[in-house]
């Protein structure tokens, strides 16, 4: 389901890099200045200003188009897409289950493909279109997969559910939902500890056989 409300195309990645590079050069000049004056540099280190300098380098600009809304962010390169979504944009529908790509709770779509957002750094997603569970419904109208999960009770606690649903939509789009066995195989990256798997398979089969465009 491509988001129809998506804003105009984001600036190209090249422009992004140029931006970052300009910042880098500016900051490098400052570092060079520090390096050329040894005494103040030593003092800076003693007062832990080196940490402050490091801090300036730690952030990079990132543009994320999430559910059709553009976010201009300044993030640390080590920040994952998952943590950026949850902690900086307050989109907590995407869940943290393991931080190691082992459970699938953090599944989102990046340019239409399902990815584990915990294994994706925010900077890697810059300029890309991200769809999270919050962006799947059209206003009050649920996405067919959300309806099917509700109808077939494809969850209990609900924590893995956003990841399951994002994965399920992608599973059909990829052409990997042609049989029960195939669905099970291609949904096995998403763990459900409540054990709703049979219901999840039923939900996906219903959407697939319903022929709706997902």
């Amino acid at each position: 389901m491509e988001n129809k409300n998506a804003h105009s195309k984001p600036e190209s990645e090249l422009e992004e890099k140029d931006n970052s590079r300009r910042n880098f050069l500016k900051q490098s000049a400052f570092i060079t200045a520090v390096a050329l004056t040894p005494a103040p540099a030593v003092k800076a280190a003693a007062m832990h200003l080196d940490e402050k300098i490091a801090e300036a380098f730690e952030k990079v600009p990132v543009k994320l188009e999430v559910n059709g809304v553009m976010h201009n962010l300044s993030v640390e390169p080590r920040a994952t897409l998952l943590d950026i979504l949850r902690e900086q944009i307050d989109l907590t529908g995407t869940k943290k289950g393991c931080d190691h790509g082992q459970c699938g709770a953090c599944t989102v779509h990046v340019d239409g493909h399902r990815v584990n957002s915990c294994l994706t750094l925010g900077v890697m997603a810059s300029g890309k279109k991200i769809t999270t569970i919050e962006g799947l419904a059209k206003g009050e109208e649920l996405h067919p997969m959300q309806e099917a999960f509700l109808k077939h009770d494809g969850f209990q606690c609900g924590y893995c559910t956003p990841g399951q649903i994002m994965s399920a939509v992608a599973c059909i789009r990829e052409g990997h939902a042609n049989s029960e066995t195939e669905i099970r195989e291609y949904m096995s990256g998403n763990i459900c500890r409540c054990g709703a798997y049979p219901n999840i398979v039923n939900a996906i089969q219903e959407v697939k056989s319903g022929g709706q465009i997902v």
């Binding site: 949850r86 995407t94 569970i133 919050e134 999960f149 969850f155």
Partner: peptide
Amino acid sequence: SSSDGPSRVDGRLKVTGAAKYSAEFA
């Protein structure tokens, strides 16, 4: 079967990502 009977009263919150778990309050 999986589709029989009334669905969960809080199901909509769970399928839309609106259900807030403990670490998710701003």
